[in-house]
Amino acid sequence: MSLAADVLEAARARKVLIATAESCTGGLIAGALTEQPGSSDVVDRGFVTYSNAAKQQMLGVRATTLEAHGAVSEAVAGEMASGALSRSDAGLTVAVTGIAGPGGSEHKPEGRVCFGIADAFGITTETVDFGAIGRGQVRAATVDHALRLLLAALER
């Protein structure tokens, strides 16, 4: 069984709806979940918020957070996850924002992705540096890691 199928099975068992808030993956996490047959019973919605304006308008990310930390930050990932939770019927959300490449900077290198998970227990965030492995590989690794975070949250 696939990782996405495992997430859906765990969500069904816990009777939890899932929503995604995606920047650098452009909807690939929601796509991986909805690729699975019968996913509509646990996938509520996906927010694709590629621009800072979209993060603010659709998820309520504060302009002050974007200015202070930049879009690729745990602070923004946390606000994205929280915003998805409050703007959906989901009980569990995952958010991702990062630099898939090419490009980046000394302070925010290519391959850096910040993750946020929000549920009834609160918000957790983390940063993973996948490295300059190429845009497609960073996005694929991000989807995989996000699914693992969802599964871990469902199993606690």
Rank of each mutant, 00 (worst) to 15 (best):
F47T: 00
V43F: 02
Q57D: 15
L28M: 13
A53M: 09
L28K: 08
V42M: 00
A53Y: 11
G26E: 10
G101I: 01
L92E: 07
L92S: 08
P37G: 05
N52C: 13
T93E: 03
A81C: 09
V72W: 05
V76C: 15
H69D: 13
V72K: 10
S51R: 06
L66W: 06
E79V: 11
V76Q: 13
G104P: 05
T49D: 07
P102E: 11
A81S: 07
S23G: 09
E22A: 07
M80S: 05
A63D: 15
G70E: 11
A63E: 15
S39V: 08
Q56P: 04
S105C: 10
L92W: 02
Q57F: 09
V94T: 07
A90P: 01
A75K: 08
V42P: 05
S39N: 15
A84T: 07
T93R: 00
A19L: 04
G38D: 12
G98N: 05
D89W: 00
K108S: 11
V94K: 03
E74Y: 09
E22R: 03
G46F: 01
L59I: 13
H69R: 03
M58W: 10
L28R: 11
R45F: 02
N52T: 13
Q36Y: 07
Q36F: 05
K55Q: 13
H69C: 13
R45C: 04
H107D: 15
V48P: 00
S82N: 12
K108Y: 09
